[in-house]
Design a protein around this nucleic acid. Structure first.
Lengths: 258, 258
DNA sequence: CGTGTGATTGAAATGCTTCAATTATCGTGG
DNA sequence: CCACGATAATTGAAGCATTTCAATCACACG
């Protein structure tokens, strides 16, 4: 009935009856506005959009609690989506990259804050006009649903990472994800340009900036990355990072598996 | 510019310019199929639905990777939504309670597994027929979008909890959430009936079952809960649990904040 | 050439995981 | 209804991981 693991850990079977790759993220990364909408739809979307340019990182697009009037789509650059807990600590919930859509209102207000992490260009669309457009474009409407469902899946992936991986593994997962984006990863030189400080990265990975720095040091010690500068990382091969992610959360004595 | 905290932690301002309660979960808990759909819509939804009864916990509704043909809605009981990492470890992503909707397909397949955690009754609706229904009911369509957006927000809340809180705090957050549901919380007796084992709870909170047991012991030591039996918890007042959640992640020496 | 911020490293303390062993609970059959 | 067995839950102990505070280093910018 249950597919046995190499050894059965503890007293409980921890494998599903059927296994399949949950989903292929590299393929899914194409679920962007350009690919989601037909050419005609894109034109109608742009017709009601304004283009905004933010010269530098750290600019506020909107803040949690604010009245929500607009939806945004990233043209270029990176936007941090974050929320503050009651104790005042920030959590970076997601990073919006070119093609991503953000700013869905909840009860007329924004739930999260959006801050630029670099120089950024955005489409800005009035929510009301988009609503009207959706009424006449059921296909576009369905695409919106698919888009939100994609974000939900991404959030679930973050839950898995935060729930199961140690900091080095989380950092490795992050680097692998970012290396999928040609905007940041020079595939020829194997170099990844990070648009985040160690503080931001800490808030994204659920950890302290010092711990993130140590995780970088550890990955470098393992030989899977090299720090050209704090924000420019050389990745000889993504395979090394994948092996880090695949390992155990804790060193252990090696009995549990294999 | 920035609203100062009691003391400014570290060298970086960690508070937003505008603060507001992110959202009111107790209010949001009403975003269920009964409240989301009008009376007529409900009737049309039920017209294409089959009722399924699972006698006991541990039954598989569907498994990740399976071809997806149906959408489900919980009538009564609890369903665990989980996914397995490549290393074979399970993460419980969400718990579906009465009124919740689950089983959205991704590329024709289920991404997660759904297993009953108790005796459960479900509506089962063929995805194809629901699609047809949605085409003729744009309002229902919009409600679906709202429903998925709600799930996304819930997932983001989980990200915050996993990213910022220690195990006792996560457990306290979980107990507070569950105490909102009259199906499990006897408000008169202040008793909460848990539909999960320590294993399930560990996989939900991103921790080991032993650690969860210790967290229960700690909350009891703090006087905010009392274990009648392992699965039946007395909560004298939710306020105590809220204070646990509001505290620091780590003991510290009290210098950082006030 | 200072100055401030970001990044790194050190050291101590706390929290969590893991393995092991014991105890409690629940379902089932006698 | 009770006893039994299996599973769940708890507790102990050791070791590893992360946080925290502190100090130093690196770097960009004026």
């Amino acid at each position: 009935m249950a597919r046995p693991l190499l050894t059965r850990p503890r007293s409980r079977i921890r494998a599903p009856e059927i296994r399949a790759r949950a989903f292929d993220r590299e393929k899914d990364a194409s679920a962007q506005i350009e690919n989601l909408l037909s050419r005609g739809q894109q034109a109608r979307f742009r017709a009601i959009a304004t283009i905004l340019d933010y010269q530098r990182g750290g600019s506020t697009v909107f803040t949690e609690g604010e009245d929500a009037h607009f939806i945004y789509s990233v043209i270029s650059g990176v936007v941090r989506i974050s929320r503050y807990s009651d104790s005042g600590r920030r959590q970076v919930l997601a990073l919006m990259l070119p093609g991503d859509l953000f700013g869905f209102p909840e009860g007329g207000r924004y739930v999260n804050s959006a801050i630029t992490a670099s120089s950024v260009s955005l489409y800005r669309v009035p929510w009301q006009r988009l609503r009207e457009l959706l009424l006449h474009e059921p296909e576009m409407h369905l695409n919106m649903l698919i888009r939100v469902a994609f974000d939900l899946r991404e959030a679930q992936r973050r839950i898995m990472i935060l729930g199961q991986q140690n900091i080095s593994q989380r950092l490795a997962s992050f680097l692998i994800d970012f290396a999928q984006h040609p905007d940041f990863y020079d595939e020829r030189k194997h170099r990844l340009a990070l648009p985040l400080t160690r503080f931001d990265l800490g808030d994204y990975l659920g950890s302290a900036p010092e711990t993130v720095a140590r995780a970088f040091a550890k990955l470098e010690r393992l030989g899977v990355i090299r720090r050209i500068s704090p924000r420019l990382i050389e990745i000889p091969s993504l395979e090394g990072l994948r092996q880090v992610v695949g390992g155990r959360r804790r060193a252990g004595n090696g009995r549990g598996r294999l």
